[in-house]
Structure formats: structure tokens, C-alpha cells
Measured scan of single mutants.
Amino acid sequence: ENVVSAPMPGKVLRVLVRVGDRVRVGQGLLVLEAMKMENEIPSPRDGVVKRILVKEGEIDDTGQPLIELG
């Protein structure tokens, strides 16, 4: 899985990584606010952040691509 998608609709509060960062499975990639709760979205695998497809403050839909890993 190279693309991390939104598991729920919500607002992107914080992006915790930058392009080029090495990430490990379970590491937080970004924080979504949904139903007044903050949810940290973890990396599904080890890899390198290739692209960040959303910006802080954006509203996303379920299934929307958020981050691409390489």
C-alpha cells in the first residue's frame, strides 16, 4: 500500500511528517479531527514520504488519499 487514505471524513489539523522523511510502521503521519476528536493516522508500513497530498486545515472525505509512501 503506497497511498495512505483517510479512514473517516474530517479536518486535517497537523501534518507530522515532511517529504523525504523515513517513517516506520505505526508512526503518526498526520492528525485528523473528526467528531470533535483528534485521531492520529499511522503509517501502514516502513517507507519514505514521497508526497503529501493534503494541507493543514483542509477537509477530507473517507478514502481520500492523504500521503504517498515510497
Rank of each mutant, 00 (worst) to 15 (best):
30 L>Y: 04
48 V>I: 13
67 I>W: 03
16 L>W: 00
54 V>Q: 04
64 Q>V: 12
40 E>I: 15
14 R>I: 09
42 P>D: 05
35 M>Q: 13
41 I>Y: 03
35 M>D: 14
16 L>R: 03
70 G>Q: 14
41 I>G: 01
4 V>K: 03
32 L>V: 10
61 D>M: 13
9 P>F: 08
19 V>E: 11
19 V>M: 06
67 I>E: 01
26 G>M: 05
63 G>Y: 07
56 E>D: 09
15 V>F: 09
61 D>C: 13
22 R>W: 14
60 D>I: 15
1 E>I: 14
27 Q>V: 06
10 G>R: 03
30 L>N: 00
28 G>E: 04
21 D>W: 04
69 L>P: 02
60 D>H: 15
26 G>S: 04
67 I>V: 10
25 V>W: 08
5 S>F: 15
64 Q>L: 09
57 G>D: 06
16 L>Q: 04
5 S>Q: 11
43 S>P: 03
35 M>T: 08
34 A>L: 11
47 G>S: 05
34 A>T: 13
18 R>M: 10
68 E>Q: 08
57 G>E: 06
63 G>E: 07
1 E>K: 12
32 L>D: 01
54 V>H: 04
2 N>L: 14
46 D>R: 06
18 R>C: 12
49 V>C: 05
57 G>I: 05
22 R>G: 07
30 L>R: 00
56 E>R: 08
51 R>Y: 05
39 N>L: 15
5 S>H: 14
13 L>A: 05
19 V>F: 04
54 V>S: 05
10 G>T: 05
2 N>V: 14
36 K>E: 15
63 G>T: 08
16 L>H: 04
7 P>N: 08
23 V>W: 02
43 S>K: 02
45 R>G: 05
32 L>E: 01
23 V>C: 06
66 L>R: 02
44 P>T: 07
63 G>W: 06
22 R>D: 09
28 G>M: 11
67 I>A: 03
66 L>W: 06
52 I>H: 01
22 R>P: 10
60 D>W: 15
61 D>W: 14
44 P>Q: 04
7 P>L: 08
3 V>S: 07
11 K>W: 07
22 R>E: 11
40 E>D: 06
33 E>P: 00
40 E>F: 11
17 V>Y: 00
